[in-house]
Simulated scan of single mutants.
Amino acid sequence: MEQKILIGRWTINNNGILTKKENNATIEFSLNEIWSYDNKSEYNVYSLPVYLCSQSWISNIDLLDFNSAFLVCLEKFEAVKPENLPIISWSETLKRQYKRFQYSLDINSFEGRKQFEYETEYKDTLSFEDMMKLSLVDPQAEYRPTVEVFGDKLSRNP
């Protein structure tokens, strides 16, 4: 009998971890993907948690829920862990995830929704000429990364 564990929008089943996107497409990560890793400088990091950082349909809170589901999955499927798996740094994996958090606006947080609404309203009032002026690049200016907004309608609210 299949046992399912639900953490946020993530379901752990006998095959791995899955979720649904807003368009009802099921995304499933198999056990092979759970154990996959990448070598980054002197550390090995888990591939899947870092990969999910690049997906716009996942909010920051969804990503934190995934981390919990991922750790439960690693423990649940310890028996099928590949032999000769090198040491993989969970702390380095988290550091790579948190780089995303520094410059992201989580649409599912109160502050994120308000900031997104303000920016949307402000951009709607700009003329084409104003938009062009704002898009000019000043090579002398201090670089500030563009804030990204993550999450979809299925993302969990804080």
Rank of each mutant, 00 (worst) to 15 (best):
E75H: 12
R9H: 10
I7S: 10
A25H: 05
S104V: 13
R156N: 12
F101G: 14
P139F: 00
N67V: 15
Q3T: 13
Q55I: 10
V80G: 06
I5C: 10
P86T: 01
A25N: 07
Y51N: 08
S41L: 06
D130H: 04
G16H: 07
T93Q: 05
I7A: 09
R113L: 01
E2P: 13
L52D: 09
F66C: 10
S89H: 11
W35E: 01
P49Q: 06
Q140N: 10
V80Y: 15
T93R: 08
L94N: 12
T146S: 03
E129W: 02
V80K: 14
L134T: 01
E148Y: 12
V149G: 04
A25G: 00
S91H: 11
D138N: 07
Y98Q: 15
S127N: 08
L48W: 06
F110L: 01
L94F: 11
N32L: 02
E42Y: 11
F128Y: 14
Y51L: 11
A25K: 12
R96G: 08
K114M: 04
T146Y: 03
Y98L: 14
R96C: 10
P158W: 11
I61N: 14
A69L: 13
P82S: 06
I12F: 08
T26H: 01
P86H: 03
D62K: 15
I107Y: 13
F70M: 13
N15A: 06
N60V: 09
V147R: 12
I12P: 07
Y51T: 03
D130Q: 15
V50Y: 07
T120V: 00
K81D: 06
T146E: 09
Q102A: 14
L52W: 11
Y43W: 08
K81F: 07
E75I: 08
I34A: 04
S59D: 04
I27W: 10
L18K: 11
N39M: 05
S155R: 06
S91P: 07
